[in-house]
Every structure is written in structure tokens, then in C-alpha cells.
């Protein structure tokens, strides 16, 4: 921009100055029906290859289960998608437009990727409702947060989620007092509040009773379609109950991928994973 242009722009009263317009990241572009691309991703820790030339594509609206023995790199893969870990090589894209490797954790979360951690982490000294309030999709800049009040609509959303995760009775209890299973539910509730386009769910049913497991299965299945869901789970019954497509990870790369029966009968899979048990 030349000086004359700059001066001109000051005279245009019908337009806001350019520097005042907040920079908007490109929106999630699902035109090719793929929500997540991971291509040729590798990551080693002190020479140990936790992720090794991993290629993974998640379709929009898909519910994908990822299984694999301990240490296969499932959680590390999620760390890479959410910006916690930077891969050594490879590409990770969210839709067509968003290069996740150029974004940090809050940007990735704001773009629409929500995550439930393997070890449930909730804000222990805050109450159940406060945890949900913080997770809610909202303007998270400092000043808006200082002035924020719960609108009726937001309150309804919180109540709705409390019912879904069955924590209505405990809404004003500190999250630190919840049982392991309840913390899992609270984290799922926080995910729901965030309204992400892609949910990464790491071992959601650990510590849950059989009944709770069924409810989780129902919930995750109902979310898919509108959103895309990636579930990492060891519990094979659970996986069987929700799985459409299963990906088997082994030593940091994809060993097999397909329908549950297909994968179960794959000799390579039987050898490294299912065969053990």
C-alpha cells in the first residue's frame, strides 16, 4: 500500500480501518468430504519412533475407532493433531484449508477440534457446572471473559448436557470429588459444550460400568454424522458395539484398516494384537 492509498483509506468513512478488523482464520472446508488428513507423519522421542510414516484420513461425519496395543502411538497421534506434540515430518490438515502444524493448541481448539484425554483431566477445584461453563463455545478473549454472563440459552445448553452426562445432581460439587467414571462423563460433557466438528476421544470407557459403557456407545454414535468422531479404545466389546471402520495402529503406523470383521480376520492383526488375547 502506498502512502496515498493509506491516506485515502483514512478518508473513507464508510469503512472500518483494516487493522481494526480481527483476523479470521479460514473456516473449516469440507468440500472433499475429508475432515482430517495425516500424511507421512513421523515423530521420534530420543530415537524411538513413536509415530512412523502414519497416513490417516477421517471422513466428515465418520465414527472411526482406533485400536492397537499399548505404546502403538494412539495418544501420540492425538497429541500431534491437537498441537501438543510437533511431528518431525509429515502433513496434518483439518479440512482443506487449515494446516494444523502451523497452529497452537488454543487455535486448534477454537478451529473445532475437541479432545478427551486418556487420563481424565477436569478442573478439580471448580464445580461441575463451572467446568462446563468454561468449556462452552464462546469468545475467550480476556475482556469478554471478564464481562461474560450466562445467557438463558447457554444455561439451557448446560442443563441439557448435564442431563446427557447424568451429573445433574452433582452440578455444584467440585469436580475433584467425582469418581473416575463420573470424571470421564464430565469430560465428555465438556466436549459437548465445545461443539467441536471433530472429537478425539481417548479411552472413554475406562472405569465405567457396563451400563455406562452402553450409554457412551449410544452417545458417540448419535454424535457422528453431524460431527466426526475418532475413538481410541482397548475394550473390544465396546469397539465392536460402535465400530463402522476400524484402524489398527502398530508401532506408529497403520497396520490394517476396514470393517471390524475384516480387520479381525487380518492375519497381521491377529499376530500382533488380537492373537495375544
Amino acid at each position: 500500500m502506498t502512502w496515498a492509498d493509506a491516506l485515502n483509506s483514512f478518508r473513507q468513512r464508510d469503512r472500518v480501518f483494516e487493522f481494526l478488523i480481527p483476523e479470521q482464520p479460514p473456516a473449516l472446508d469440507l468440500s472433499h468430504n475429508i475432515v482430517l488428513y495425516m500424511e507421512g507423519v513421523s515423530k521420534s522421542f530420543d530415537g524411538f519412533k513413536a509415530i512412523n510414516d502414519l497416513n490417516l484420513y477421517i471422513e466428515a461425519g465418520e465414527l472411526r475407532c482406533i485400536i492397537g496395543p499399548n505404546g502403538a502411538g494412539k495418544s501420540t497421534m492425538m497429541d500431534i493433531i491437537t498441537g501438543r506434540t510437533r511431528p518431525d515430518t509429515g502433513q496434518v490438515w483439518f479440512g482443506q484449508q487449515l494446516n494444523l502444524l502451523e497452529m497452537d493448541e488454543p487455535q486448534i481448539a477454537e478451529a473445532g477440534i475437541g479432545r478427551k484425554f486418556q487420563k481424565p483431566t477436569v478442573f478439580e477445584s471448580l464445580t461441575v457446572v463451572q467446568n462446563l461453563e468454561l468449556a462452552m463455545a464462546q469468545d475467550r478473549r480476556v475482556w469478554p471473559l471478564l464481562c461474560a454472563r450466562l445467557s438463558g440459552e447457554q444455561q439451557d445448553h448446560i442443563d441439557e448436557v448435564l442431563t446427557i452426562v447424568n451429573l445433574g445432581e452433582l452440578r455444584h460439587d467440585p469436580a475433584g470429588k467425582l469418581s473416575h467414571g463420573q470424571k470421564q462423563w464430565l469430560e465428555i460433557g465438556m466436549l459437548l459444550m465445545q461443539k467441536p466438528s471433530l472429537l478425539l476421544v481417548d479411552e472413554p470407557v475406562a472405569g465405567m460400568t457396563h451400563q455406562e459403557m452402553e450409554r457412551t456407545a449410544e452417545l458417540l454414535t448419535s454424535l457422528a454424522g453431524e460431527r466426526s468422531v475418532v475413538v481410541v479404545e482397548h475394550d473390544m466389546d465396546f469397539v465392536r458395539s460402535i465400530a463402522r471402520t476400524v484402524t489398527v495402529l502398530h508401532q506408529g503406523s497403520v497396520l490394517s484398516e476396514g470393517k471390524m470383521e475384516q480387520v479381525q480376520n487380518d492375519p497381521a492383526v491377529i499376530e500382533v494384537y488380537l492373537g495375544e488375547g
Binding site: 491437537t82 501438543r84 497452537d104 493448541e105 488454543p106 481448539a109 477454537e110 479432545r115 484425554f117 483431566t121 477436569v122 478442573f123 478439580e124 477445584s125 471448580l126 463451572q130 461453563e133 468454561l134 468449556a135 475467550r140 480476556v142 471473559l145 471478564l146 461474560a148 465438556m190 465445545q194
Partner: peptide, 20 residues
């Protein structure tokens, strides 16, 4: 709510980053 976010950061800093 900013205060709640502060406590969240105090208790689990990286978790609050993953929420945004």
C-alpha cells in the same frame, strides 16, 4: 468467568489450552 479460567489454568494449564 475470567476468574474461573484463572483457576482452571492454575489447576491444569495444558488442559485449558486444549479447550481454547
Amino acid at each position: 468467568r475470567l476468574g474461573l479460567a484463572c483457576v482452571a489454568i492454575r489447576d491444569a494449564e495444558s488442559r485449558s489450552r486444549f479447550i481454547g
